[in-house]
């Protein structure tokens, strides 16, 4: 049985990854999960300098999911390299570093600092965080801006580049095509959907940031639809995510066209979710006599 997949020349032992921002750099979850069993660790977003993030409350539960407005708090690329990447050297799994920035130059600085790091297998460019005022999503909601930043990053990047797309757009196909045209090696989607919750007892917004990104099983049908549309719009590989809770969900994304999948908010519900998805995919393959996971991709 083959569960290995290949994206932009990088081989993954299985298609199960962690969604950026839900797994730190793996350290916190290594108490629960043997990281070697995962296809890849996708790290929390890393900027050129430390970011404070947003005020609290930063998270709120909603029906079937959660809202977050962390605001990309991170210790900056230097600490990331010295501590987080050093930690990940102990493990036999792929490392995809999520990169965020306020300006194009910020992104390029991180990309260049990571270019000499052999432990970094791929870069995932976050142009889709809805919770920061500058940068991020500003590059991810207009096709020409996405095309432009993708091209600028590709000029400098030594590792293959994944552009992480926002669902907060009119046409995901158009955005996927813009990333491809800009030279992206792959795309990942979906980031969170902008949402809001009001605490009627306190007569206040549930989040200090007022709005936040919706994640969890509540968004899965939207994500599956967008992965389907995007994967039909481009030739580059698609990494699918949005509310994956189990292997059945993961297989849905693969059948919609994803080459790999990522588990996000459900890590918070059950720290063992990623491992259960890996195991469940193998069980599904055994049950239906699927010899190669790649046979399932885009099968619908």
């Amino acid at each position: 049985m083959n569960t290995a997949v290949e994206i932009a020349g990088v081989k993954f032992k299985n298609p199960v990854m962690t969604a950026s921002g839900t797994f730190g750099s793996g350290m916190e979850y290594s108490d629960f999960v043997d990281l070697d069993k995962l296809g890849a660790i996708v790290t929390k977003g890393v900027a050129n300098v430390p970011w404070e993030g947003n005020p609290v409350p930063r998270v709120a539960e909603v029906y079937g999911g959660m809202l977050n407005a962390i605001g990309l708090q991170n210790p900056g690329v230097d600490v990331f390299i010295d501590r987080d990447l050093e930690f990940l050297k102990k493990y036999d799994t792929r490392v995809i570093v999520n990169v965020c920035g306020k300006t194009v130059e910020d992104y390029l600085e991180v990309v260049e600092r990571l270019s000499s790091q052999e432990r970094v297998d791929m870069l995932e460019i976050n142009v889709s965080c809805p919770n920061v005022k500058e940068g991020a999503i500003a590059f991810g909601q207009k096709a020409d801006a996405l095309y432009d930043i993708t091209g600028r990053i590709k000029e400098r990047a030594k590792q293959p580049v994944i552009m992480k797309l926002s669902p907060n757009v009119t046409s995901i196909s158009e955005m996927a095509k813009a990333a491809e045209a800009g030279g992206a090696d792959a795309i990942s989607l979906i980031n969170t959907i902008t949402g809001m919750k009001i605490d009627i007892h306190k007569r206040k917004f549930a989040l200090a940031n007022k709005t936040g990104g919706l994640s969890g099983p509540a968004i899965k049908p939207v994500a599956v639809r967008m992965v389907y549309e995007a994967s039909h719009a481009v030739k580059i590989p698609v990494i699918g995510m949005g509310g994956i809770a189990n292997a059945e969900d993961a297989i849905e994304f693969i059948m919609a066209g994803a080459s790999a999948v990522a588990v996000g908010a459900m890590n918070f519900h059950d720290p063992y979710t990623t491992l259960n998805v890996v195991k469940g995919i193998e069980e599904y393959m055994a049950r239906y006599g699927v010899s190669d996971i790649n046979e399932l991709r885009g099968i619908v």
Partner: peptide
């Protein structure tokens, strides 16, 4: 006390 998500230090939801 603060609103928490993961409880294990990964999500950065509950900072002071």
């Amino acid at each position: 006390e603060e609103r928490m998500a993961c409880g294990v230090g990964a999500c950065l939801g509950c900072i002071c």
